[in-house]
Structures are given as C-alpha cells and as structure tokens.
Design a binder for these strands. Sequence first.
RNA 1: GGUGGGAUGGCCGAGCGGUUUAAGGCGGCGGUCUUGAAAACCGUUGAGCGAGAGCUCCGGGGGUUCGAAUCCCUCUCCCACCGCCA
Length: 424
Amino acid sequence: MLDIQLIRSNPDDVKKRLRAKRVDESLVDGILNLDKRRREIQSKSDEMKKTRNERSKEIGNLVKQGQDASALKEETRLLGERIKDLDVDLKNIEEEQHQLLLTIPNMPHESVPVGESEESNAVVGEWGEKPNFHFEPKPHWEIGEKLDILDLPRATKIAGSGFPLLKGSLARLERTLISWMLDLHSREHGYVETAPPYLVNRKSMTGTGQLPKMEEDMYLCQVDDLFLIPTAEVPVTNIHADEILNGAQLPVYYVAYTPCFRREAGSHGKETRGLTRVHQFSKVELVKLVKPETSYNELETLLKNAEEVLRRLGLHYRVVALCSGDLSFSAAKCYDIEVWAPGMQKYLEVSSCSNFEDFQARRAGLKFRREAGAKPEFVHTLNGSGVALPRLMIALLETYQQPDGTVKIPDAIRGIFGADVLKN
RNA sequence: GGUGGGAUGGCCGAGCGGUUUAAGGCGGCGGUCUUGAAAACCGUUGAGCGAGAGCUCCGGGGGUUCGAAUCCCUCUCCCACCGCCA
C-alpha cells in the first residue's frame, strides 16, 4: 500500500512512477478526491465531538448539583445524532479509499529500467556455462518417464493436469534437496527455520498483496474462507503482522519450506510440459524484515544466498533484473534467477528475489522502533525463493543426465542423498 | 461441537455509568547520589488520523445513554472441563 500522505504531497511524481508500471493515473485522482472529502468530514465530526464532550461534562456537573439539565440533554442528543450520520459517511469514505489504495501496485525503485514487458529485462549476471553433451540431451519428462520416477498421467488421474507425482528416487531427491537447502540457509546464511501454516486467511493474503487483485489465481477453501498458500512468503511475511518490533532485533531472517498452490489461471498450454508449470510444487523461501536504509543491500545478499544453491550444485544460471512493467504487484525491485535446462534448451525461473520496501509492511502492519521512545516506523520486507524445487530438479536431471538414461548426483548432496547416481 | 471463565498500555494488574486526560507495580529511558555500579529517590515512558485546534482507540462489530473500559447484543480468540478425532 502506498502512503496516502506521499500521494497527497507529490501526486505528479507518484503518477509518473506508477505509469512505468502501467497504472492509470485517474485512479490516483480518485483517491485524492476521496481523501479531501474524508478530511473535511473528519474535521467537522471532530469539532462536533469536542462540543459534545464539553456538554456532557457540563451535564454531569449540573446533575451533581441537583439542577435541571433536560434542555441541555435534549440539545446534546440532537448533536449526537448529527455526529452519528457524519461518522457513517466518514466510515464509508474511509473504506472506499482503503479499498482503492489496496488496488494500487507498488512503485518501481529508481534503479529499475522502465519497460513494458520482459523484453526490457536486463541480464546482470551469469555463472557457469552451458554443459556440452556428446549425445542429444533429453528433456526431464523423458528422463523421468524412462526411470519411472515421474508419473504425470497417474497424477492427472488422481487430481487433474498440472499436479505432479514423484516416485522412488525423484521423491527422495526432492526431500534431500529441501533438507539440504534448509540447512544451507539456516546454518550458513543465518535464517531462522520456520514451518508455517499452509492455509491462510484473507487478511494475510491482503498483507502481502495477493488480494484483492489476484484472488482468481488462488485455491480457496470456501467453507472456511481460507486460501492455500501460493508461496511461503504469505504466512512468513505475516508472522509479525500488527507488531512493533524492537529495532535491535532487525534484521529478521526466516527460511521456510512449504508446498505452494497456484491455479495458474489462463496459462494453460504455455510452458506447461512436464514439471515446468504445475499447480502444486515445493519451494524453500527466504524472507527478510529489515531497516529501510539497508533494504537494497539486503536484496543483494538475499540474491547471493539463493544463487549459492545453484553454485553448489554446479548448475549454470543467469540473473535478470526485471524492468518496471514486468515487476509483480508488490515489488519495487526484483531479480529473477534463471537456471539452464539443457534438455529443454531454456532458462527457467527458479527464484524471484524482491524488495517490497514498505509496501507490504503498510498493508500487514509491520513496524519497528529504532530505540526506546522513538516513533514506530515501517520495516522493509524482502523475499526470494531459495529455490523452487520442480525447476531445480529439471535442471539437475537435464544437466547431469548420462547416455544410459541415469542421472549423476552432484557432490554437494551425494552424501545425504546416499547414492552417486539417480536410477529409479 | 457442548458448558463455564476470561480478553485493559511492552508485561502484570485495578477500575464495573461522569476529575479514567486508565490507579498501582514491573520493565524501558532520563536525572540525583556514587570513583563506577547496585540500592534508594525524582521525572518520564502506548497507537492512529489531522495543517492545526482537536478527535479516536481498554479483543472486533453493533446497540442503550447527554456521557460507556464500565450496561446490553453479537463475533473472534484464549483458558478449563466434557464429547469427537489424528
């Protein structure tokens, strides 16, 4: 959520920055109009309440002295009715303004290139090289089918298309990777391991920005009005919702493994082969709550922490800085990490590392106090995948596949996986 | 799911219709004293809106009243016991 005071004091600047994110500026004007009306009504109501408070005190004194206060009582009662009417108006306008504010996306950071679509994204880093094969590398779905470790037809029978069924060594590989990544981030990178709820309420979904605009992308359990989480970002960022943290506690780092559920409405037929785009997947997520002045440095270290996963596994990847038009609703700046999948001959996004500045903090009520007695300030929130499992496994299968159809296990996880080669 | 008891400032806890602009204690911060510290004493210490005057907030929402932390209704959550279940 944007700061209404910022919108009020710099409307043209806000409009300009939102234009880079393809937001119609009439939305901003609508909010400014409501804001003006809101403040007028509020100050009228406040004045009348002041009068009422004074009169109530007077009445109290008169009654105490045994004098007649009925005329004053009646007069005050009428005043009270007018206040009630005003407050109903006020509440409606506040609600309308709040709902409008919730639909405005975050503004891009000044370092973000302005652009309409992913064509304007910039590759800002690259690690390793595309591996060479002396045979034709297969896509992961062929490797998985051959080894009988990936069974998409049966998963479709059970749930529908877009739901994976891992078996045998692939299921084991996923479990190994989850555990290994959690250890890496918690033991070496300083993140506190968490295991959050997989279903969350509307308030949490609104706090991180999935609601109100992306409801159709989420799975909803209607009887309880709870959503299956699309990412651990939602429960984890909301851990400290409506709290004022002690400044000395910051930065707060959390890592969580959760399954993620996404309806992927409207994306059928697009990159949906195999495990590339599924409705349910596993992910290890990194979340940071930090002081505002540190958030852009924190974004860089967050990115490094996520990259470390791919480096240790020896996977070639590149880092892409998203342009303004490609940023998600809540993000001010975002890097995507894209891992190379040689069988598909494609880079696949395995992580998005974003700085949301105070956008989510305002929605979720995430504050901190610099020192005793200081005014509460909003924290900055960040998150990034560290990393998403299906595409990571795609890259592993396709990168380390061997001519006989088996797959080598990289050194980093060989010990805990318990084998050198993935067979079936 | 049933019955009963709760929800007050960072924490504990009083208040049950009008100096509550929320007592008191703990904790925090500042000061006096001290070589320094502890103890003692003094002061201070919640949030939101508003340009400001000021207004609002005692779990959420609604009601009664000139006036509600206080009375009524309702919801949520917590605790206890019972039932059901992993």
